[in-house]
């Protein structure tokens, strides 16, 4: 499971970074989303997840971490998911507005042909 999880996180991060470095805002948003997925998986992984053990106390089971999955990273992941979701929403709104104002989806506010739109905007 470790190998699978590590490979998955690595692959998602690599894809995310590749997309984030592209010049279109849509790909940028996708890339940032993938990176935040990878980060959430990573937080989860750092809590040493164990298969078949719930993070909830049960009767008759000693209250030590050997018998449970650590619940704290799951709480952290929940917070991180909420925050990264909200921030991605902000990014999408800014990207849409930029496209509306500058007439293109280049990250520097240009037209779809690929050249930057510096002549359109302010210096």
């Amino acid at each position: 499971m470790e190998l699978l999880l590590a490979t998955a996180i690595g692959a998602i991060t690599a894809t995310g970074i590749y997309l984030a470095l592209r010049s279109r805002t849509f790909e940028l948003v996708l890339g940032m989303t993938l990176i935040s997925y990878a980060v959430n998986l990573f937080i989860f992984a750092m809590g040493r997840p164990v298969a078949g053990r719930a993070p909830i106390l049960r009767e008759g089971v000693p209250t030590t971490l050997e018998h449970y999955t650590d619940p704290l990273p799951q709480a952290l992941v929940l917070t991180a998911i909420v925050i990264s979701f909200a921030m991605t929403a902000v990014l999408i709104v800014v990207a849409l507005k930029l496209r509306e104002v500058s007439g293109g989806d280049h990250v520097d506010g240009g037209d779809p042909a690929g050249d930057s739109g510096r002549e359109r905007g302010d210096p």
């Binding site: 984030a20 805002t25 940028l28 940032m32 990176i35 935040s36 980060v39 959430n40 990573f42 937080i43 991180a80 925050i83 990264s84 921030m87 991605t88 902000v90 990014l91 800014v94 990207a95 507005k97 930029l98 104002v101 500058s102 990250v107 520097d108 506010g109 739109g117 359109r120 905007g121 302010d122």
Partner: peptide, 23 residues
Amino acid sequence: GAARLRAGLHYVTVNLLGSSLFL
């Protein structure tokens, strides 16, 4: 305004990446 939106997109992106590294 176009200039502010462009700067805003860069600012949001850089800080999103920073937040990911923080996590």
